[in-house]
Write a protein that binds this DNA or RNA. Structure first.
Lengths: 108, 108
DNA sequence: TTTAATAGAAACTAAATGGTATCATATGGA
DNA sequence: TCCATATGATACCATTTAGTTTCTATTAAA
């Protein structure tokens, strides 16, 4: 089980970035518009958007002098995929445990 | 959409912690046993386990002089729950978009 | 063609993070 | 009881992170 989606996990760790992602899931926004929603300077928001982009959680499209930031649901696959694998491991373990218990009961 | 599972997201951001979680999903382990799997001192592993515990992703049970660390699948709900909400937002948006397009087509 | 708006970049700071080394504590067993 | 083992705790260090301020570049529009 390896480092898939390193960037996505890192991007999701910060609450501001998760809030940004929520906004962008509802509506595409320029950097300025995103920044209006936070008590923080635009450069700070820009950095967060950069990290979200690295994690593939958003896509940025140049449009004249603006940059439109859009949510990229594909990027979440790295995360949900890893969580799914973890769950698979867990269930395999439960299955082994169950089998063991059944074997023990038969022995008695 | 708010800060649910802050600790869990933070805990998952580090690759070492994700690797630890994978191990623990397969098998309960003491701190020492976990540490054997990494090129890192035990205090470092202990810190990671502490952060995983804060994020509710593991539970720790004292057992004599040992501490057994076990994976806590419940803790992932904060994460999957948030991801689900995000997805819901996204789909609502797609629905609005679809409705709009259908309306426009009827107008022509 | 100025001027105002939008964004990018760089340099800096404070605090958090991931790690180490070292020392103290508690428990199981010879 | 005494010793080895398993863990906890503390202090320290280097790097990263999240944020700021300030300055520059590009584009829209009067």
């Amino acid at each position: 089980m390896m480092n898939a989606g390193e960037g996505a996990f890192r991007a999701l760790a910060d609450p501001t970035r998760r809030a940004i992602l929520s906004l962008l899931a509802e509506e595409d926004m320029t950097i300025g518009r995103v920044a209006e929603n936070f008590a923080m300077t635009r450069p700070a928001i820009k950095k967060h958007l950069g990290i979200l982009e690295e994690g593939q959680l958003i896509r940025v499209e140049a449009r004249g002098r603006e940059r439109v930031n859009r949510f990229n649901p594909e990027g979440l696959r790295a995360v949900t995929g890893w969580l799914g694998e973890l769950d698979r491991f867990w269930n395999l373990r439960l299955d082994r445990l169950k089998a063991e218990i059944e074997r023990d009961m038969k022995d008695e």
